[in-house]
Structure formats: C-alpha cells, structure tokens
C-alpha cells in the first residue's frame, strides 16, 4: 500500500468521524443528507460482500467493517435518535435516489468483468459511489450558510477521492500490468463532481466566510 492510498483511506475515515462528531456534539443533523448516507450504506454493503469469502488484510477487513457500521450509525442517528431526528429536514432532502441507483444497476449489468451476482453487485457499488454524493451537494446548495463541520465533511470526502487518483497514478507507474478501468473511470467522474464544491470551499476559507454554494 502506497502513501496516497493510505492517506486517502485516513481522510475517508476522518470525514466520517467529523460527521459523527458533528451530529453527536450538536445533536443536530442539519445540512446532512440522509439520502446520501443511505446510498453509501448500499455502496458499502454491496461492495464488501467479499468480507464473507475473501481476505486481503486485517487493515482492509477493519476498514470495511468500519465503513458499514459508521454509515449505519449515521442513518440510525438521523432516523431514530430522539433529538437528532427532529433536526432532519426531509422537505429539503428530496433527491430521487432511484434516478441514481437504477441507471447504476443497469450499467453494472451491462458493463462488468464477470456476469456473476457478486461481481455485478461490486461493479454496481463502484458506479453508485461515484454519484452518491449528489443528494448531499444538492442539499448544501439549498442550505444558506453551510455549517462548518458539514462543509469539512464533504471537503474531506472529496479529498479522499483526489488522493485515490494519485494512488492509481502511483500504481500505474510502479506495478507492471496493473489496471482497473471500471474503477478508474468511475473514480475520475466521482472526483470531478467535487470540483465545483472545492472551488467554493477554498474561496470561502480564504475569505474567512461561511460556505454558501450559489444556486
């Protein structure tokens, strides 16, 4: 594992910790999209089915379990927690997730390496992860004065993807025969989706202003 991959994973881990801390400390999930969190849970469950039949390393196993449990935990907070659930604004979080999930499933059934249940579900998870942030970005755009921690959460999530791009470039240069086209193309699209957000995040940070995305 190279430094970019490790830094990417740690950024991903940190983004989730920031989100959980925000929810727990403020007892509020204002500005957090439940739809995006549900999509991530679906992404993690369909991708990490291999926990049941393949072992890579203790590190991978731990991280996979952490990602599944933490997104489940965020969803639990938003849906079930007595005070946090009251701060969820479902009227703003209206993205139609089936518009994302269905095309991803059709694409996974069409473009995959192997037409088996686990391989199609894995491919589905790669496609879905690329677009799962969209409900969150739309919600941020509707929220005037985005909460600092929510902004940081999305920034760290985007940072994790950018570091994965560097990881792939490093692997291409150092591992002969290394290639994974589905992951590369989806990951590049996923990172590109954050570009606009990065621009406004850095701008607000430099001007010392609260983040607000233009609609």
């Amino acid at each position: 594992m190279n430094i970019f991959r490790f830094a990417g994973d740690m950024t991903h881990l940190l983004s989730i910790i920031v989100l959980l801390l925000k929810i727990n400390a403020t007892k509020s999930c204002a500005g957090v999209s439940l739809k995006t969190q549900e999509l991530y849970l679906l992404v993690f469950v369909t991708r990490y089915l291999d926990l049941l039949y393949s072992y890579i390393s203790l590190y991978n196993t731990f991280m996979k379990l952490f990602f599944i449990c933490s997104s489940g935990c965020v969803i639990w907070y938003i849906r079930e927690h007595k005070t946090v659930s009251q701060t969820y604004d479902s009227a703003q979080d209206t993205f139609r997730v089936l518009f994302l999930a269905c095309p991803c499933m059709i694409l996974a059934l069409t473009v995959n390496h192997d037409f088996t249940v686990t391989e199609v579900l894995w491919t589905f998870s790669i496609y879905l992860e690329a677009v799962a942030i969209l409900p969150q970005l739309v919600l941020l755009q509707r929220t005037k004065n985005v909460d600092t921690l929510t902004g940081n959460y999305v920034f760290l999530l985007g940072g994790y993807r950018a570091l994965y791009l560097l990881n792939w470039i490093y692997r291409i240069l150092t591992e002969p025969g290394y290639r994974q086209w589905i992951v590369w193309i989806s990951g590049t699209i996923q990172t590109a989706i954050y570009c606009d957000f990065f621009y406004y995040y850095i701008k607000s940070w430099r001007n010392n202003e609260r983040l607000s995305l233009p609609s």
Partner: peptide, 10 residues
C-alpha cells in the same frame, strides 16, 4: 488479455 487488478482497495 491480462487480468484486472485484484480487489485490494476499499
């Protein structure tokens, strides 16, 4: 055709 990389990333 060469094999795709093993699923060793997260």
């Amino acid at each position: 055709e060469a094999q795709e990389a093993p699923k060793d990333e997260l």
